[in-house]
Each structure stands twice: as C-alpha cells, then as structure tokens.
Amino acid sequence: MAIDLRSDTVTRPTDEMRRAMAAAQVGDDVYGEDMTINELEEKGAALMGKEAGLFVTSGTMGNLLSVLTVCQRGDEIIMEEQMHMFWYEVAGIAALAGVQIRTLPGIRGVVSVVALQAAIRSEDIHYPQTRMFCMENTHNRAGGTVMTREQMQDLSSAAKQAGLWVHTDGARIFNAAVFLGAEPRELAACTDSLTFCLSKGLAAPVGSLLVGPRDFILRARKYRKMLGGGMRQAGVLAAPGLIALDSMRLRLAEDHRNARKLAEGLARLGAEVDMDTVQTNIIRFQVPMAAGDFLRRLAARGVLANATGPDSIRFVTHYEVSQEDVDQVLAACGEILA
C-alpha cells in the first residue's frame, strides 16, 4: 500500500470508530433527536469553551454558515490573503452569502493589527459594511504554521473594538494547541465562532463542528437546513467524531515529530525547506525539478504527495504515517534528488 502524504484527510476510520458507528444510538437530527449527534455537539462546544455546537458535513460548510448567520448580503468580511476560506471554498461566500471578501497580506498567515484597523470601512454611502474578521489556525498555505494566543487576541480585540464578529477557521486547531502546549479553549476564547475538523488529523470519516454562542448556533442550524445539511439518523457519523475528540487529538504530537523528521531529512537531501514553518504536521518544500516530474517518480516508489507550485511539494503527516514510513519516504526522495 502506498504511503499517502497528500493530506491528513486521507486517513481512514480506526477499528474502534467502525465499531462505534455500528453501535451508535440514532434518531432524527432535524428534530434534535439523534442522541449521538447531541453528545458530539455538546462535547465539542465544551472543549472549546463555547455555549453550543453544530455538526456539519465539512469545514467549508461550517465557515459558510458562520458568514450566512452573521452577515447580510452586500456586507464585507476581512481575512488574510492566503486563507482557506478565500482559496479553497469555491467562492461560496460570494455566490451563496452575497458577501465580499477583502484580503490583506500577512506573514505566515497573520495580518498586522495596523493593517486590519486600516481595512475596516468607515461609514460612507459608497462602501459595504465591514461585518466580520476571520483568522485561520493552523494556517494551511503557510505550511501548518500556528498563530499564538497573543496574536489571536490582539487581532480579535482590534476587530471587536470596531464592532466586528470574529470567526476562526480552526480546521486543525488541535494541532495548534499541541504546538503551543495550550488547551484548545484558550485559543477559542479569542474568537466568537470557530469551526474545527474531525476528518483530518483526527481520522473520523466525515464532519466538522461549528461552535459559538447558543443564539448564533440556533440561527446557523436553520441555514444548515437551507444548504441541504439537515441530517437524519447521522449518529453513525457522529460516533467516530466522539472517539476523535476523546483520543485521536491526544496523539497529534507524534504527527508533528514525524513531520519534523521528514523536513530535516529533506533539507539534508538538498530540498529547500524553511524549517521555521515546520511547526505541526505540514511540510512545504521546493525541489530542483518540475513538481510533476518529482511526484511521478515519487509515486513510482510508492509515495503519494501533492504539488503546491511549479517546483514545490507538500507532505502532510497523520496517524497512518509511521516513523518507518518516514524513513522509506526519505529513502525514495534521496534516490530522486541524488
């Protein structure tokens, strides 16, 4: 079987998760009667120190719901220019919410407070209303880099002083917490609402949670129904999410160690790696050849990965990648880069 470093979304549910799916208590979630989903939403909200949670099919849905719930058509939201919400969510914020995104440059996914303050619209008949500020932690396109609690709090405070809602795409927020040695709720305290993913490094087969104030989640639940996300006996999907939150998040440091080992090995082999960005489970590096050629030769040696540019590659570690797999990947890369 290939060693798959394309993403941590490729993880398959564990045997324990499969058993939990078979045994899950279920009901009609549109009526609020699925006991397993209710438990997952309550547990996720409590972990993040929020009043309520909502089980959604994906982080993309959760992020869109946050915008639909807070904003009016014609509003503007502000975010860093490399955020997942801007690059990889099919312009749903524009197409479905009717909301304009204003992007700002950042350093490793973090904008400056000064830039944020300058971007907030003043009252003018010609301008849209600035309604929301968004952050991403960890930051995918920056290489899995982490925003500190202080950075999050400084930006959040500036946004709130201007009356903005603060939303965080926390797809990999547990990775950020592990890197910082913090509790997830400490980071979530810096944001009004937050999405986090169950099906990336936590290995559940599907789903994310949107958490926030109770009245916000009640409104978001109605928009979820509008988007076709009203699920029925979906406790079979929530059951592995409970295991993800109970145990899988506790082993993420292993993925970080494997990513660091990979990055250090790649640097020794001559790949260009910014080691300061290798903080969690993502490694972005450049090779002295076309990315497509590198990937084809890598696949021929039983390793799958993705390109992020003409000569740049991304590896992502996860629970199905062992230390022995890391050694095999480095051996394959060594043959290609020799």
Rank of each mutant, 00 (worst) to 15 (best):
G106A: 06
A291S: 15
A52W: 01
M226H: 14
Q82V: 00
A253F: 02
S7A: 15
A162M: 06
P240T: 02
A46P: 02
N63S: 09
E80Y: 03
N175A: 15
H256N: 11
E320W: 10
R301V: 08
N63W: 00
A307H: 07
T277G: 01
S7Y: 03
S156W: 04
I93Q: 01
V329H: 04
A52Y: 02
D311F: 01
I282F: 10
C134Y: 04
V99T: 03
R224E: 01
M248V: 05
Y319H: 14
L262M: 15
D311L: 01
F196H: 09
T145Q: 08
L262H: 10
V111C: 08
G181Y: 10
D75E: 09
K222W: 03
A119T: 04
Q161I: 06
H318W: 12
V178I: 11
A234K: 01
N137Q: 07
L202G: 10
Y319N: 11
K225E: 13
G32T: 03
T130M: 03
A115S: 14
E89C: 08
R73I: 04
G270H: 12
E324G: 13
A253I: 05
L245G: 13
P184F: 11
M21G: 01
A307T: 14
W87D: 08
P128W: 02
L194D: 05
F294L: 07
F55A: 03
G212A: 06
E76Y: 01
D28G: 02
M1I: 07
S157M: 05
E186S: 12
R260E: 11
S157R: 13
I101Y: 00
V211K: 05
R219W: 00
G270P: 09
A332Q: 12
S247W: 12
P184V: 10
R121G: 01
S312C: 09
T195L: 08
E264S: 06
G32W: 02
A182H: 12
T277P: 09
A24C: 09
A203H: 06
Q82H: 12
S208L: 05
G241K: 04
P240F: 03
L40C: 11
L96H: 12
R214T: 08
Q72W: 05
R121V: 00
A220E: 04
D327I: 06
W165D: 00
R249A: 07
M21C: 03
L180K: 07
Q117D: 14
A171Q: 09
L245K: 13
H139D: 15
G106S: 07
I120K: 02
R172Y: 01
T168A: 15
A95R: 15
D311A: 11
F315Q: 05
A142G: 12
A267D: 12
I93P: 00
M135S: 14
M35N: 02
V316W: 04
K50S: 10
M1C: 10
R185C: 13
R102E: 06
L266W: 12
I78H: 05
M85G: 13
M21H: 01
C71K: 02
C333P: 13
A263Q: 10
C197P: 01
I336E: 13
V326G: 13
I120E: 04
I101P: 03
